[in-house]
Simulated assay, not measured.
Amino acid sequence: MPATARSTDTRRVILDVAQRVMAHKGYSAVGINEVLAEAGVPKGSFYHYFNSKDAFGEALLQSYFDEYVSDMDRVLAQPDKSAAERLMAYWQQWRETQSVDECQGKCLAVKLGAEVADLSETMRLAMKEGTSAIVDRIERTITSGLTDGSIAIDGDARGVAQVLYGMWLGASVMAKIQRSPAPLDTTMAVTRRLLHL
């Protein structure tokens, strides 16, 4: 295997392990040594793959959001469903993902959002870019639903998309606090009302 492929693979392993560990513990609670040990990568090689811990955090978030929006695109692109059905399938998948392991979820935006926004400007900007990409997709699907007649809203599509995303983030945090999917279920019901479904 060429050295560049090995380097890319090792970098990917580090990011995958970090995402899994930090989804449970948070960013500050996880040291680089813990990630490298679990990834089976020598401690001294971290700076070969990342210039700093901030650069590592930024790469982690970019990688996470790239995967997230790719999966979101798959859910929202089902041609045999109305825009309303596609959007509700996305929210249902969110509910299922955030209800696992006693509502500890797997969403880094939920787990790390407030924490990293105060730690690092580069990580805050990566978080902002990633969450904006999600809101963009929600907005496009709402607009598509207005066109196909499966969705009706009060207000503009961008504003409703932002409210929905914020509401689901908040519900995910509350589900973690309460160790119950009830906030997610309430948010699902309110989502239906906002979209007039």
Rank of each mutant, 00 (worst) to 15 (best):
D154M: 13
D118S: 13
Y68M: 10
S52I: 02
V17F: 07
H48V: 15
G40H: 01
A55H: 09
A182H: 11
K176Q: 13
V13A: 06
V21Y: 04
A189F: 02
Q93C: 01
A157Q: 07
N33A: 14
I153Y: 03
V116R: 03
L194P: 03
M22W: 08
Y64C: 00
S52Y: 09
E58Y: 02
L61S: 06
V173M: 13
D118I: 10
L112K: 07
G44V: 04
V173A: 12
T10G: 01
R11H: 04
P183N: 05
Q92C: 00
S45M: 08
D9G: 10
G31F: 03
P42G: 14
A161C: 01
V116G: 04
L197G: 10
I32G: 02
I32T: 15
M88T: 11
D73E: 14
Q162R: 15
W168Q: 07
S28Q: 15
Q92A: 12
A37K: 09
R86E: 02
E139K: 13
T191L: 10
G145D: 04
I32P: 01
R158H: 13
F46A: 05
D185V: 10
L108Y: 02
T143G: 05
F56Y: 03
A126G: 09
E58G: 03
L164M: 11
V100D: 05
A114K: 00
A5W: 14
A117F: 09
M188P: 00
E58D: 04
Q78M: 10
V41L: 05
V135G: 01
A18Y: 11
V190L: 15
A171H: 04
R6E: 09
H24M: 14
L125M: 15
N33Q: 15
A114P: 09
A77S: 15
